[in-house]
Design a binder for these strands. Structure first.
Length: 416
RNA sequence: CGGGGUGUAGCAUAAUGGUAGUGUACACGGUUUGGGACCGUGCGGCCCGGGUUCGAUUCCCGGCUCCCCGACCA
């Protein structure tokens, strides 16, 4: 993509109505537009990052035989009443509205009820099980207090998956598959080392639920972590009996600020029983389905990556989720020889399948470099008069600042 | 929802009971050209409602907005 065509603009100064680093940088760099508190529009660069994260999640979900679908944002009151979660007293984050034709609807803050209800049309027998489904959807939550930029919004993108099983073994297998898929996702987006599967309050059906918590100063949670044993415990279940069961002592645990980047719940058979989702087993008996629910906050992951990787110059993206791999920066563009050369490199890299943002604008070097740093694209390739004379390109790795001078051949080989 | 703060141009800010200045961005001209450069010219603004006052962006009341702390986050 040519930067001269990009409709977004960068800002030198951070917006005064944001304190969170993730929002300040993403807005300054033109990845996001703030519509209102806790609600952000995704601009072209931001959308590319989100799509990258989605694709990683999609690949990991598909790998464990979860099938993608897309539910609706509008939800039926009746379906949520069945499990007694329509009431604002029971679920505080509801957005609701009225139909002009009469009746009330809700806006999806989660989707387990509607999707369990939907599956009644598709699950009748043990032969229909096990199955897993997932979607990427905007969740709408009437948060009393949105905060921390895109870390806690009122509208945000989430991947949610649901598993349906007829035996406990199948159920446990899918639960374990999801755990592994989650670990793969966090590794691939570049926060695996600091992300822990954490024991948290389990709700009605199990002793624990599992959260995925990433070490992050901007996070909202307190997690007690034993790095050596790889054990992490949410403060809400930090009790002697639980520590004993998990095989750690209090002294081994370090109190750490973390951000919840995913969670998985084991519903057992209760959810299906409440929702009315039954199948016939081989004996012909009507039996509630085992269910699990698995969420990853896509936009929150984006925020956490920004918080963890950004430096004083701006954003720093891991290659796996960067909007582009290469920022091709052409200097001295008023020199036709240089700009022709840069055009050629742009075409060649694209032909090679490299995602390139091409700064083809006629601007001063300082401005281009500062903006390039702010955007955080992993590799900056500088085409300049200076380079032309030496027959090389300056290749700067954004994350480390490492500078290499490569010939055209070396450049193409490096990005092949 | 409780507490604290905030609101002036696209963005960041200043001053002021007599309609507002600066930086940046933008437009034009010129000088520049490896770290958001410089000079000149120009365009552009007081959250909403009410009150006090000859006169309110400024003071008062109410509302809304955004930020932070807390509570909340199946």
């Amino acid at each position: 993509m040519r930067q001269s065509q990009l409709f977004t603009k960068t800002q030198k100064e951070a917006p005064s109505d944001e304190e969170a680093k993730n929002a300040q940088l993403l807005i300054r760099a033109g990845y996001l537009h703030k519509e209102m508190a806790g609600v952000y529009q995704l601009l072209p660069l931001g959308l590319r990052v989100v799509e990258k994260i989605k694709q990683i999640v999609r690949e990991e979900m598909n790998a464990i035989d979860s099938q993608e679908m897309l539910a609706t944002a509008m939800q039926s009151k009746e379906v949520w009443e069945r499990t007694d979660r329509w009431d604002d007293e029971k679920v505080e984050v509801w957005f609701k509205s009225e139909l002009k034709a009469g009746g009330e609807i809700g806006f999806g803050w989660s989707h387990e009820e509607p999707l369990a209800n939907m599956m009644k049309n598709h699950i009748a027998s043990y032969k229909d099980l096990p199955k897993m489904i997932y979607q990427f959807q905007n969740k709408l939550r009437n948060e009393l207090r949105a905060k921390s930029g895109i870390m806690r919004g009122r509208e945000f993108l989430m991947k949610d998956a649901y598993s349906f099983a007829d035996t406990e073994e199948q159920h446990e297998k899918m639960y374990a598959d999801q755990q592994q898929a989650y670990k793969n996702v966090y590794d691939r987006v570049g926060i695996g080392e600091d992300t822990y599967m954490t024991f948290a309050a389990g709700g009605a059906f199990t002793q624990f639920s599992h959260e995925f918590q990433t070490v992050c100063e901007a996070g909202e949670d307190i997690t007690y972590i034993c790095k050596e044993k790889g054990i992490a415990i949410n403060e809400e279940v930090l009790e002697e009996a639980n520590l004993e069961e998990l095989g750690v002592v209090r002294d081994e645990l370090v109190e750490t600020k973390t951000a919840e980047v995913g969670n998985i719940f084991n519903f057992g058979r209760h959810k299906a029983e409440d929702a009315g989702l039954f199948y016939k087993n081989s004996e012909g008996e009507r039996t509630p389905v085992w269910m699990g629910s698995y969420g990853i906050g896509i936009t929150r992951v984006m925020g956490v990556v920004v918080e963890k990787k950004a430096d004083e110059k701006g954003l720093v993206w891991p290659e796996s989720i960067a909007p582009f791999k290469v920022h091709l920066v052409a200097l001295n563009t008023d020199d036709e020889e240089i700009s022709d050369w840069a055009e050629g490199v742009y075409a060649s890299l694209q032909k090679q399948g490299v995602e390139v943002l091409f700064d083809d604008r006629n601007a001063r070097p300082g401005e281009k470099f500062a903006e390039s740093d702010l955007l955080g694209i992993p590799y900056r390739v500088v085409v300049s008069k200076k380079g032309k004379e030496a027959g090389t390109f300056e290749v700067v790795t954004r994350a480390t600042g490492e500078v290499r001078n490569l010939t055209e051949e070396e450049l193409y080989a490096d990005f092949s």
